[in-house]
Amino acid sequence: MGPLLSEPESEQAARLRQRLGTRSIVLVGMMGAGKSSIGKRLARRLGMHFADADTEIEQAAGMTIPEIFAAHGEPAFRDGEKRVIARLLENGPIILATGGGAYMNPETREAIALHGISVWLKAELDVLLRRVKRRDDRPLLKAGDPAAILARLIDERYPTYADAHVTVMSHDLPHEVMADAVMSAVERHLDTADADPSGDPPHAG
């Protein structure tokens, strides 16, 4: 994990970073939702550190994620993922991109809620499928038809992702535009939380 080159600070970025205080922004969602690419852009906008949980896991294990899955299985990977995310959040504030299954772990959700603001980058199946086809390092897609696997994962995960503080639709737009959408959605969440701590999480199109 390290700092990214920051951009000239906008008024919105300065205001949002101040309002975040010690809290991180944690991007959750499916593989192909754009968490890493949007997260890097967001970190540059805010002048914050960026971390990709999958990259951190690989560095800690000295193995790639497909190698971890093959050698130790998914349960061992998930346990390591939980510990790495907890460590990253304790050393925040950061912009954190999580793996697709990370938010399904109750302990990880609790850690994110304690240390940060969760942002679900929600994408439609066709968008996800088009994006994941560009890469061959997705262990969960090796077991059959990618479209069928993604559809099953959507059914399993989207109800839990919906518990995130903020939802932003992940469209095929420039990363700068998506970073702006995340920043605005997080600000709206903070406005709502300040006005009514029991209010429902805001959503953005």
Rank of each mutant, 00 (worst) to 15 (best):
A71S: 10
A71T: 08
A53T: 15
G80T: 04
M48K: 14
A51V: 15
A71P: 00
D52H: 05
G80C: 06
A51D: 13
F77L: 10
G62P: 11
H72V: 03
R78F: 04
R78L: 05
E81R: 05
D52V: 07
E74T: 06
I65F: 02
A76K: 03
A53R: 10
E58R: 00
A60P: 04
E81C: 08
G62E: 12
D54Q: 12
G62F: 00
V84A: 03
I57W: 01
G62Q: 13
E58G: 09
G80I: 03
G73A: 08
A53M: 13
I65V: 15
P66R: 09
A60V: 07
D54W: 08
E67Q: 15
I65D: 09
K82S: 08
E67R: 13
D54T: 13
Q59M: 10
G80D: 04
I65C: 09
D79P: 00
P75Y: 08
E74G: 07
P66L: 10
I68Y: 01
M48Q: 15
D54A: 13
D54C: 13
M48W: 04
T64D: 10
I85V: 12
D54E: 13
R78W: 02
V84R: 02
E81K: 06
E81N: 07
I68L: 14
F50W: 08
M48S: 14
F69V: 07
R78P: 03
P75W: 07
H72L: 10
E81V: 09
G62K: 11
F69G: 08
A76H: 04
G73I: 08
A76M: 07
T64Y: 03
F50D: 12
D52R: 03
E67D: 15
A76C: 02
T64A: 14
I57R: 02
V84P: 00
V84W: 00
G73F: 04
E74D: 07
I68W: 00
Q59A: 12
D79W: 01
D52F: 01
R83Q: 15
Q59R: 13
R83S: 11
P75Q: 05
D54H: 13
F77H: 03
F50T: 12
H72T: 04
G73Q: 07
E74R: 07
A61M: 15
I57E: 01
K82F: 02
E58L: 07
G62I: 12
D52I: 01
T55H: 13
H72C: 04
Q59G: 05
P66M: 10
H49G: 14
T55G: 10
G73L: 05
D52T: 02
R78V: 06
G73N: 08
I65A: 09
D52C: 10
E81M: 08
P66A: 09
F50K: 12
M48I: 03
E56G: 01
T64S: 15
T55M: 10
F77C: 09
A51R: 12
T64F: 06
H49E: 15
M48N: 14
D52K: 05
F69Q: 11
G73T: 06
T64I: 12
D52A: 09
A61I: 01
G73C: 06
F77G: 08
T64V: 11
